[in-house]
Amino acid sequence: MGPGNKTSISEFFFTFPIKQEQQLFIFGLFLGMYMVAVVGNFLIMLATGANSHLHTPMYFFVSNLSFVDLCLVSTTVPNLLVNILTNSEAIPYAGCLTQMYFFSVFACMDNFLLALMAYDRFMAICHPLRYATIMSPQLCGLLVLLSWTISLLDCLIQSLMAMQLSFCKDPDLPFFFCDLPQVLKLSCTEALINNILVYFTTGLLGVLPFTGILFSYTKICSSILRVPSPGGKYKAFSTCGSHLCVVALFYGTVFGVYLSSSATHSSWKNTVASVMYAVITPMLNPFIYSLRNKDIKGALKRLMSRPTFSQ
Rank of each mutant, 00 (worst) to 15 (best):
L129V: 12
Y119D: 03
S166G: 07
F167E: 01
A118R: 00
I125Q: 08
I157F: 03
C126F: 01
F102R: 03
A124M: 07
Q164T: 14
P137A: 07
Q138S: 15
F167V: 00
S151F: 01
M135I: 02
P171M: 01
L139P: 09
F176A: 09
R130C: 09
D120W: 03
V144F: 12
L113Q: 10
D110I: 10
H127A: 08
L153D: 10
F103I: 01
M123N: 07
L143C: 06
A115R: 01
R130N: 14
G141C: 13
A107M: 02
G141H: 13
D172V: 04
L116H: 02
A115C: 15
V105H: 03
A107Q: 03
Q164R: 11
P171T: 08
L152E: 05
L145G: 14
S166L: 06
M117F: 03
C108S: 14
P174N: 11
M123V: 10
R121L: 13
L114M: 15
G141Q: 13
V105M: 02
L152Y: 06
S159T: 07
A107R: 00
S166I: 09
S166P: 10
D172S: 11
D120H: 06
S151M: 06
S104N: 05
V144K: 12
F112M: 10
V144C: 13
L145W: 08
D172N: 09
S166Q: 13
G141M: 13
C168G: 15
A162Q: 02
P171N: 07
C168Y: 05
S151W: 00
L160S: 07
L113G: 08
N111M: 07
L173E: 05
Y131R: 10
L139N: 10
M123S: 06
L113E: 05
R130Y: 07
L165T: 02
T133W: 07
Y131D: 14
D154H: 01
P174C: 10
C168P: 03
Q158K: 12
L156P: 04
F177Q: 09
L142K: 11
F122R: 04
L139C: 07
F102V: 05
G141V: 02
A118S: 11
T133A: 13
M161K: 02
T133D: 15
L160R: 08
Y119E: 03
F176K: 03
Q158C: 05
C155W: 00
R130E: 15
P171I: 05
S147Q: 07
D170V: 03
Y119I: 00
D110R: 09
L116N: 03
L142R: 12
L139H: 08
L153P: 04
M109R: 06
Q158W: 03
L173Y: 09
A162K: 00
S136A: 09
S136C: 15
K169Q: 15
A132T: 02
D170G: 08
P137Y: 13
R121G: 11
L160E: 08
Y131T: 11
F122V: 01
H127I: 02
M135Y: 02
A162T: 01
F112W: 08
L152C: 14
I157H: 05
D172R: 14
L139Y: 10
L173N: 07
T133H: 13
F122H: 00
T133I: 08
S159N: 11
V105C: 01
L173R: 04
R121I: 10
H127L: 09
T133V: 14
F177E: 09
L116A: 06
M117S: 06
Y131I: 04
L142Y: 01
R130S: 12
M123E: 13
Q158A: 05
R121F: 05
